[in-house]
């Protein structure tokens, strides 16, 4: 009997084809979707990216941050700063912002990694609040009341509004694909196996040679960089930024946690499914006003009670399927 190890499965191959078709259809959206739909899709892509990154952070590395709005806001403010002070074109600024996000995350991590558990969570939130206060002190960017992107900068993306909206849409789509592909590559790598081990049992992971601190640090700064780029794109789409909007714990962390938890934390598929569920609920129930928020709460409670590992956790344990080729399967072959 011989054996071989594979990572792709029938479900992951099927999903790759479906996802490929979906991407082609989504790229063509400017030709078949309305303006409002494209704005909605962009928002979904951006939230999808935030959810995947928060899942990597909290679901895998065990870094339960409630302060990712620090990097969303940072990205937004740096975009406005670069554009207003130095006339940097917004799209060109995105990779710069990602790198700056990584650089800012290094000292932040050095500080908050000293904290454990709930203290870590509170620490991340405090850092985000400090970022918000700092942003509100920048009078050239409107201080506490914020500012708008100058028309000239907006026009530099594309002169017509329709093209501009398409460009922002495509960038959001590209960023979501980049985040998902990065996550897949990270999780398939040797470090990804280490990270998955940390997810399941830190004590055992350390005893088997996994550098816990270093692995968490890499995940933290990587997600910070990508989160900053997403933040930049969020506020490029909004064209206006204020400290309260940029560093909103509700918008950039609470909703994201909801998506990841109902979808299934600690799986790659979970945040994707969670984001879709969230937007389906929001789009069908938003007219109900506050009742909508209560329904979100009830959904969260129901999922925690009946499927504590989230929708995908339930599907996975029930049917054993996987959409991305991450886990190893041993195939035994009779000779």
């Amino acid at each position: 009997m011989s054996a071989r190890v594979t990572r792709s499965s029938r479900s992951s191959r099927a999903f790759a084809i479906i996802a490929g078709c979906a991407v082609v259809i989504l790229i063509a959206a400017p030709w078949w979707a309305g303006r409002a739909d494209m704005r909605l899709f962009s928002e979904i892509f951006l939230y999808l990216s935030l959810a995947c990154l928060w899942n990597l952070l909290a679901g895998y590395a065990g870094l339960v941050s409630v302060g990712q709005q620090a990097f969303v806001g940072f990205g937004g403010y740096v975009l406005f700063g670069l554009a207003i002070f130095w006339g940097v074109s917004p799209l060109f600024a995105l990779p710069i912002i990602a790198i700056l996000g990584v650089l800012v995350a290094v000292p932040v991590a050095a500080l908050i990694f000293r904290l454990r558990g709930a203290y870590f969570a509170i620490g991340t939130w405090v850092v985000a609040e400090i970022f918000r206060l700092l942003a509100s002190q920048i009078s050239a960017l409107g201080g506490g009341s914020g500012t708008s992107l100058p028309v000239s900068v907006v026009k530099s993306i594309a002169s017509s509004r329709a093209t501009r909206e398409s460009v922002v849409y495509w960038t959001a789509l590209a960023l979501a694909i980049l985040v998902i592909i990065t996550t897949v590559f990270v999780l398939r790598s040797r470090k990804g196996l280490a990270l998955t081990a940390i997810r399941d049992n830190e004590l055992a992971a350390g005893s088997l040679g996994v550098e816990i601190w270093q692995t968490k640090f890499i995940v933290y700064v990587l997600t910070a960089g990508l989160t900053s780029a997403i933040g930049a794109l969020i506020f490029l789409q909004k064209i206006r930024i204020t400290p309260d909007a940029a560093f909103s714990v509700n918008d950039w962390t609470a909703f994201v946690i909801f998506m990841v938890v109902i979808g299934g934390i600690g799986t790659l598929e979970g945040p994707i499914i969670g984001t879709l569920i969230f937007f389906v609920l929001r789009e069908t129930l938003a007219d109900l006003g506050t009742i909508y928020l209560m329904i979100l709460g009830l959904v969260a409670i129901a999922i925690m009670l009946f499927a504590p590992k989230g929708v995908w956790g339930y599907v996975k344990s029930r049917y054993g399927i996987e959409l991305f080729p991450i886990t190893h399967r041993v195939k035994f072959e009779e000779e």
């Binding site: 190890v5 196996l193 998955t196 081990a197 997810r199 399941d200 049992n201 004590l203 055992a204 992971a205 005893s207 600690g266 886990t327 190893h328 399967r329 041993v330």
Partner: peptide, 11 residues
């Protein structure tokens, strides 16, 4: 025992 419960035995 401290298994990685959500990973396969092989992993």
């Amino acid at each position: 025992p401290q298994p990685f419960t959500a990973m396969s035995v092989f992993e």
